[in-house]
Design a protein around this nucleic acid. Sequence first.
DNA 1: ATTGGGTAGTGTTTAGCTTACACTATGAAT
DNA 2: ATTCATAGTGTAAGCTAAACACTACCCAAT
Lengths: 235, 235
Amino acid sequence: MHKYSKQTRLLLAVDCIIFGFDGETLKILLIQRGFQPEKGNWSLMGGFVQPTESIDQAANRILKQLTGLEGVYLEQLHTFGDTNRDPIERTASVAYFALIDIHKYETQLNTEYHAEWFPLKRIPKLVFDHQDMVEGAKRRIRYKAALHPILFELLPTKFTIPQLQTLYESVFNTTIDKRNFSKRVLATGLLIKLSEKDKAGSKRGAYYYQLNMQNYYAKFQAFLNFIPNPDTLHL
Amino acid sequence: MHKYSKQTRLLLAVDCIIFGFDGETLKILLIQRGFQPEKGNWSLMGGFVQPTESIDQAANRILKQLTGLEGVYLEQLHTFGDTNRDPIERTASVAYFALIDIHKYETQLNTEYHAEWFPLKRIPKLVFDHQDMVEGAKRRIRYKAALHPILFELLPTKFTIPQLQTLYESVFNTTIDKRNFSKRVLATGLLIKLSEKDKAGSKRGAYYYQLNMQNYYAKFQAFLNFIPNPDTLHL
DNA sequence: ATTGGGTAGTGTTTAGCTTACACTATGAAT
DNA sequence: ATTCATAGTGTAAGCTAAACACTACCCAAT
């Protein structure tokens, strides 16, 4: 039922950049595109916005299709709308990025989409303008993580300070003095120390911490500063 | 020519939140909607994305239609896509915000759209979800201006430090000590002092400055800090 | 039982930056 | 000459960020 009669309609898609952290490096989840054009090439997970759903709902649906996860961190990144970005038919695409706990990802869903995790430094050639989307997402996650505590979304509920530091070092491709890092992190009041230790990383074991959710929500918008000399980083 | 045959197409629009600064308060430019639905009600300037243009091009076109301006600061804000945001037919809208020198705005174009500048604190009721768009733009301009020198885009090429301070105070709804403010601003190396004075604001006159464009582009991405205690601001 | 190896955990000093704060300069109008 | 309104400038104190090194713990190997 077209009521703004003279206007052109077009396809609207959603594409998701899904970040995960395996303890070593920051990775994104890619699939092999299942239909033409560019069938079989590496691609972001995406899909068309359906008539009955909002764009946000579409993004959540697509994220769940691939990962089985709901209620995770998902934020709209940017809308890409060059006329020829899809060679078959004009399609605008709203890119979202998600931060998930990589261990909650259900590997069995892999098979359907031939999904694989790729370290940010070794992203293969992607279909259409998905490279630009990934670039934008990398910039955004760095930018936002330099100011707000979003990286916790990539960790399990219980994590150690050395794990957290490795995550920050990996995202910002830098090294941080561990004394200063733990001082800053603890000074935020965002962490609750547990009595249990993680024995996997060392003989001695490192204490587990969990987020103080109250403080987390309260301070989320305040500017934090876990990263030394943020001005010198190329965000 | 529909080639992804089973998918639904929809309308894609662009809406612009246009900011200007009159020396007193931050304002946005609104028009009276010229067609149904909600004809005659206050609205952002917008239009449909055409088949031959990218979304960015559509935004620039729409900005030019209303203001006569090209090449000004224009940034994509967010895409709004609730299913019922336009009661007539499903339409997603990509919101952009623009920062213009209010004096360059060509008033004669007013008549066609019945445009008017409204101070941020006195925005009338707007059509559809345009209120949300304006809210988002307010948050974004504050956020970005707290970190990057975008507010210069609202000033003429020649401006005085008191004018600049008034602008910052108006955007952040705060007061800043003028000694500290001028120290910080000058310390960035972004400003070139001219020998000419602005006599309009006072008998004594205030020196004009202009941007050092080289430093401006070089330092645009670095985090600045013109705002005292940004953590306490509710961005 | 002792030693060695690897990671966890902590404190202090220094430098730089941020903040708070008040007086003089200028030019026009009376 | 005085008044008035805005422009312009410096310093001291407190705080935060940065640099930096040693001890604690646990296990495994001898």
